[in-house]
């Protein structure tokens, strides 16, 4: 599929008229659209709810792979959380991404079952310096300070799991952890906030995305610069609280998407940011930052986390290898 070929041997309009085609057909005529597929393993692949070894892999469970702790403002919907396996399909055309998930699920029926899925649109974070920064549903540029693929040293340090980092799970060396969080935005209330307040909550201007301490989008924020009252980048602003300078240098590779799942029962948008981050270790690169954010971030007034999951993403594979070979072999 990532090469634009059909899913399965029998193409969408081929084969016997008495048989359902292998490929479901909604991607006929579409290109591969940059489709990428990323797989991850949840804690449930290693141990069941009672902690018992499920498939003889328990001794290889990575130490940080477990159900994420409860964070303030978490109102998790179990039907949008957790899972034993995950598949992230990304493409320039959502129809292609859906095609991939749909066909993989079909192939897997009998062995695996779908617990939940989330369709996102509009990437919220740039992952390369060649991309311009897109906006989230708050209307702000999102991901200005994201790790870019060109920053190889930072990718090495903050994204990939190093060899020897977790002796029990050496199979994960060269892989990563995927943190998924469904942030529902209180869109209607947000829209009634003044421009000045919105910018203070974020710590950047809505127009160019420059930090409130001045300059242009990619100017480093000056967190010490005084403002009319307190710091010009307020103490409870989002960019201050999650900045590496205040989090032991930790950075994340974010790969999140906006989502709108229709409306809620009281006529508001069921919408927000489906946050996806890749980190070398959630215990140092996600949990403490999420706690700080939940506790102090001005944005939390407009956010509610309704889904949450953590997966270990095995390293990439070479020709002739299969996904997770380092774990299962």
């Amino acid at each position: 599929m990532v090469r634009g070929l059909s899913a399965g041997e029998i193409g969408p309009t081929e084969g016997s008229t008495n048989l359902p085609p292998d490929d479901t057909g909604e991607a006929i005529g579409l290109s591969a659209s940059g489709l990428t597929i990323t797989f991850g393993f949840g804690p449930g692949l290693f141990r069941d709810d009672d902690g018992k070894d499920r498939f003889g892999l328990a001794d290889r469970q990575p130490k940080a792979l477990r159900t994420l702790p409860h964070f303030p403002a978490d109102v998790l919907d179990p039907e949008k959380s957790y899972g034993d396996l995950c598949v992230q399909a990304c493409a320039d055309d959502p129809q292609v991404a859906v095609h991939a998930i749909r066909n993989l699920a079909r192939i897997g029926f009998g062995t695996v079952a779908v617990r939940w899925s989330q369709l996102g649109f509009g990437r919220t974070s740039t992952t390369s310096t060649s991309q311009s920064t897109p906006r989230n549903l708050f209307g702000f540029k999102d991901g200005t300070a994201n790790i870019k693929s060109e920053e190889t040293k930072d990718v090495e340090e903050h994204v990939w799991v190093a060899s020897g980092a977790d002796p029990r799970a050496e199979w994960l060396a060269g892989g990563s952890y995927l943190v998924a969080r469904r942030f529902n935005m209180n869109i209607e209330i947000w829209d009634r906030q003044t421009l000045g307040d919105q910018e203070d909550f974020i710590g950047r201007t809505k127009d160019t995305g420059a930090p409130l301490s001045g300059g242009t989008e990619f100017t480093e924020p000056d967190f010490t610069m005084p403002g009319s009252t307190g710091h010009i980048i307020p103490d409870d602003s989002h960019i201050r609280l999650v900045h590496p300078d205040f989090n032991n240098g930790a950075r994340m590779l974010r790969r999140g998407y906006n989502f709108v799942d229709g409306s809620n029962p009281i006529g508001g948008l069921d919408a927000g940011l489906f946050f996806i981050a890749y980190v070398t270790d959630p215990d140092t690169h996600f949990i403490p930052i999420q706690n700080t954010m939940a506790k102090s971030d001005a944005l939390m007034e407009y956010l509610k986390v309704t889904g949450s999951a953590l997966f270990a993403v095995p390293p990439g594979i070479g020709p002739g290898e299969y996904v997770g070979q380092s774990l299962f072999a």
């Binding site: 201007t205 127009d207 420059a210 930090p211 409130l212 301490s213 001045g214 300059g215 242009t216 100017t219 610069m225 403002g227 009319s228 010009i232």
Partner: peptide, 9 residues
């Protein structure tokens, strides 16, 4: 109008 950072409007 307060808090106009350098190079901002």
């Amino acid at each position: 109008v307060e808090n106009v950072g350098p190079q901002l409007s």
